[in-house]
Design a protein around this nucleic acid. Structure first.
Lengths: 210, 210
DNA sequence: AAAATTACTTAACAATGTTAATTTTCCAAA
DNA sequence: TTTGGAAAATTAACATTGTTAAGTAATTTT
């Protein structure tokens, strides 16, 4: 059945073309310019064709979200060198901030936009695997910090959420234009890192208390 | 000039009607159901009329954002009782979380949606007064904590942003459906408060260190 | 009463996501 | 080779959205 194989390949190829076009629009023109019709223009098919490969637009945006996570994991390769779990945690936070400010559009679709989560809800596996993996990585790291006496033992989940919350809060405030209006834009990034530094500092101090 | 007065009153009245209608749609049906045409239906004028009272839709959404801040300040009246600045800070954080989870639509338009900030950019006074006031309140409180030895002296701005970042991060992750998929929904709110507790705890411990 | 200003509406434009109905394409069997 | 049928792709529309130019109606001023 060589014909069927070829047909399947063609189908996968169109699917890939659609995703490639959506990424191109996303990167070059931004989230709101990723429209069905523009994608159709690029791949030189009618808009309806897209609906033969994807249930709806959310499914395409979900893919951009996945791509963002791949990019993010790439950025975190530099963590491998760092043995000390607390320093590792610190670097992870810095990477997070750096990623958010360097790729705000990707960050947006990964952690702010509703569309990808709506796509998730329609899928067979409703789990948010990417978020799950990321949060689990953070949890393990914090558990390791506690094991080795770098962080006071306690509720790993609450501590993880606290730290994730802080970096996400800073990045998302920046991305959605809430920070630039309040702090000097020149030093915004520096201040964000100082906020993280402060947290790491008091974590460290708190365990060496009397 | 009684006639001019009456006309101005009528004009203000329509303006008020538009805002009332937008609030009604916003509260009863949610952000995305606040459309020019639905507002026009409610006030029984043509859609175009709305543009004689507001530059564009963003300006209307900006008003919802302002209303949200009013609601938030109302919720913070319970802070007046608390003399101890650290306890006050803690309560403020709890209020913030509570507000975000109780009024997610308002929180969204206050701190996540881009529209209100786009409206701001078109205004004569481009300052984000509400955010400014809120952040300044936080800064003063933290400065007071430092003064009275409840928090280690340091960069007030960085510490303020860290704390705001954390609570905003938690709330915005919850609102945009990133938390419910990762932690037990039953205990989500409890965990958020535990995260805040943890931060307050290590802040306290860090100043009583050796 | 006529002129001029103000208030308001009609009708449209240019997008958007999505879908029903139709046509085209292509492979397999007669 | 012709024909039948399935698969792929398109056309054309629907129902929305925000926004605006042009025109009408009402009201105030002269």
């Amino acid at each position: 059945m060589g014909i069927k194989d070829r047909k399947e390949k063609q189908k996968l190829d169109i699917r890939k073309q659609i995703l490639d076009a959506s990424v191109r629009l996303f990167v070059e023109e931004g989230f709101e310019h990723v429209t069905i019709r523009k994608i159709a223009d690029i791949i030189e098919y009618s808009p309806t064709t897209i609906y033969h490969h994807f249930k709806d637009k959310n499914e395409i945006l979900f893919n951009l979200h996945e791509l963002g996570f791949a990019k993010f994991m790439e950025m975190n390769l530099n963590l491998a060198d760092i043995a000390n779990p607390l320093l590792r945690l610190h670097k992870m936070g810095e990477n997070y901030i750096e990623f958010g400010l360097t790729h705000p559009e990707f960050y947006d679709v990964m952690f702010i936009q509703k569309a990808p989560m709506e796509a998730l809800e329609q899928m067979e596996n409703c789990d948010w695997d990417r978020g799950d993996a990321a949060l689990n990585g953070l949890k393990e790291l914090i558990a390791s910090c506690m094991e080795h006496g770098y962080v006071k033992k306690g509720n790993v989940e609450a501590v993880s959420m606290a730290i994730w919350g802080m970096v996400h809060g800073l990045v998302s405030l920046a991305i959605r234009d809430r920070l630039g209006k309040l702090v000097d834009k020149e030093h915004m990034k520096a201040t964000m890192h100082q906020s993280l530094n402060w947290l790491m500092g008091i974590m460290d101090e708190s365990i060496r208390k009397g």
